[in-house]
Amino acid sequence: MINSAILVTMCLFALLAIQARLLRNAIIHLAVLSVMAAFLYMRIAAPELAVAEAVIGSGLVTLLYLAALKRNRVYTIGVVGNEKSKHLADPYMHHLMRTRALREIREFFLIREYQLQIVFVPESRAEALQNEAYDLIIEEDDKGIVAYTDEESYIMMELEMLIQMRGAQSQLRFERLQPPAEEQELQDTAGI
């Protein structure tokens, strides 16, 4: 009875690992699957195999996958709020997440196995551009959504091309900035 329950749980975690959209979640599901298998070996009186399964399956292989994932990157998108959205940051973010442009961006990073992180920026745009923590700054104005990118960012070039191909450029516009050397100058014009 318990053995069957363990087997069903193993199948469940295998399906979860296949269906996981983020690789990190899939790795953890596989580790749980291995622990379940080790437990099952314990129950059918094979402790030697259980130790091997626990060590190799859930320890070594999980760490190996995590080390491979270490080469993955986290991409942070900062959303600059306008005057009325400052007090309503969460509903504003939900509204923005549902727009077509943001969905396209998320799809783009998901395909490339980037860990995407979208945060609300309480500062003004000029301050956010100075901040090194954000890779991309997004702001909504009356005509649509503007994305401020670095000039030499090849990922953004790829994304811009994709957005143009999908015909969504009416919503999302890209504005290229100079490399950080000339950023001070831009800061001054933005202040005026």
């Binding site: 402790p47 030697e48 259980a50 130790v51 091997a52 060590v55 190799i56 320890g59 070594l60 760490l63 190996l64 995590l66 080390a67 270490k70």
Partner: peptide
């Protein structure tokens, strides 16, 4: 007891990988 050279060696190897994951 259950275990032995290979299983213990696997744990020792996972120490190297853990160290790499934390401090590359």
């Amino acid at each position: 007891t259950p275990g032995g050279g290979f299983q213990g060696g696997g744990i020792l190897a996972s120490l190297f990988i853990a160290r790499y994951v934390i401090f590359p």
